[in-house]
Design a protein around this nucleic acid. Structure first.
Length: 232
DNA sequence: GCCCAGGTGGGTA
DNA sequence: TACCCACATGGG
């Protein structure tokens, strides 16, 4: 019988992800996210940055700080139209003002207004609860759980999905759910790893993996791009 | 003027 | 389930 050289085992998805993480960390250094100081600031930032640049979200956050409304009680006491005016720079301001109130009211009813109590509940329960809040979808829920709650919930945002899809690790146009499942399946559930990895993917996406103008030739992950990726 | 940015929810087929 | 659309500001 003809002897066939054993095929080299394909690198496991887990190994590929580990490699990406090492390369990105080496290239960019630690990102030390989330760029907000307090848990409440992180949660508000997660809502304010929905489909919005962080610059505009940060302006809104600064305005809230300036008007001394950065507390659960004061935000709850601020009428919706007033709150909307303050966060105008973040765009979708009426919707986001509603979401902030929805979240704080839910927190009051379900967790006695205590973030510590919210984050003391098991990850899956906390996530299910957050998803019941109108205006909080899967990405915002994961950002809150990961960055404010230090829970291992990967934020499989647009940048993460775009990068993984271009590298053939996800199907093009893969859903949030599919991307999150993939990352959770192939990474150890470590919140500090999820935190740093997500932040590094955003750093990569912003600079090199733009929607219609990818700059793969300069990307630190260029060596891992599949040959099939020719859109540049 | 145009495209884009760390999404979400409601409607329709 | 899979699309389509409204929601809105500000930078390049």
């Amino acid at each position: 019988m003809k002897r066939v050289a054993p095929k080299a085992l394909p690198a496991s998805q887990a190994r590929i992800l580990q490699k990406y993480f090492r390369v990105l960390l080496q290239h960019f250094g630690p990102q030390r996210w989330w760029p907000a100081r307090t848990r409440l600031g992180i949660i508000l930032g997660a809502i304010l940055t929905q489909n919005t640049s962080w610059l505009n979200a940060e302006r809104a956050l600064r305005q809230l700080r300036k008007s001394k409304r950065l507390s659960i009680e004061r935000l709850r006491a601020t009428p919706a139209d007033n709150l909307a005016r303050q966060i105008r720079s973040a765009g979708f301001f009426r919707q986001k003002a509603g979401t902030i109130h929805n979240f704080l009211n839910w927190l009051g009813v379900q967790h006695g207004g205590s973030l510590s109590r919210l984050f003391a509940t098991p990850l899956d329960d906390a996530r299910r609860g957050l998803l019941l809040v109108k205006g909080i979808g899967p990405e915002t829920a994961d950002a809150i759980l990961l960055y404010a709650g230090r829970k291992p919930a990967f934020v499989a945002d647009a940048y993460a999905r775009r990068i993984l899809a271009r590298h053939g690790l996800l199907a093009p146009g893969a859903s949030y759910r599919a991307a999150r499942l993939f990352l959770h399946k192939h990474l150890p559930p470590d919140h500090s790893l999820f935190n740093e990895f997500h932040a590094l993917l955003v750093a990569t996406g912003k600079r090199f993996c733009l929607r219609n103008n990818p700059r793969c030739d300069a990307c630190p992950l260029r060596a891992f791009l599949p040959r099939s990726w020719k859109a540049h």
